[in-house]
């Protein structure tokens, strides 16, 4: 994804990717729903696939799911905020 994108756009795009992965319309995905808690019906494979889709879509690296003490992903809004930080870091020149 090129150019500067703002946080609302990122939130909408992340929500759309989540909606796609559970085959629901985006409107059916509450922004406060936990992504990894079973609330949206995303199992462990679904979560991995979603993270890869997000990495592809935003050209970023998401946190390592297998790291010891890896933090859970939280809500749709929190995942989008995480993505926004990674995108900002990349656009700041650098990296991941």
């Amino acid at each position: 994804m090129d150019g500067i994108i703002d946080n609302d756009l990122i939130l909408a795009r992340v929500r759309a990717l989540i909606a796609e992965s559970v085959r629901q319309p985006a409107a059916a995905i509450p922004l406060d729903a936990r992504v990894d808690g079973g609330e949206l019906g995303i199992d462990s494979l679904g979560l991995i696939k979603l993270m890869v889709r997000i990495e592809e879509a935003f050209d970023i690296t998401m946190p390592d799911l297998a790291a010891p003490g890896a933090a859970p992903f939280g809500s749709v809004r929190e995942v989008a905020a995480l993505v926004a930080r990674q995108v900002a870091a990349r656009q700041a020149g650098g990296g991941q």
Binding site: L45, V52, E56
Partner: peptide, 18 residues
């Protein structure tokens, strides 16, 4: 294929890590 690789390797990595 890149997604297939990343996905299966992540499943494997988590299985070994746990």
């Amino acid at each position: 294929f890149a997604a297939v690789l990343q996905q299966y390797m992540t499943v494997a990595r988590m299985s070994f890590a746990r």
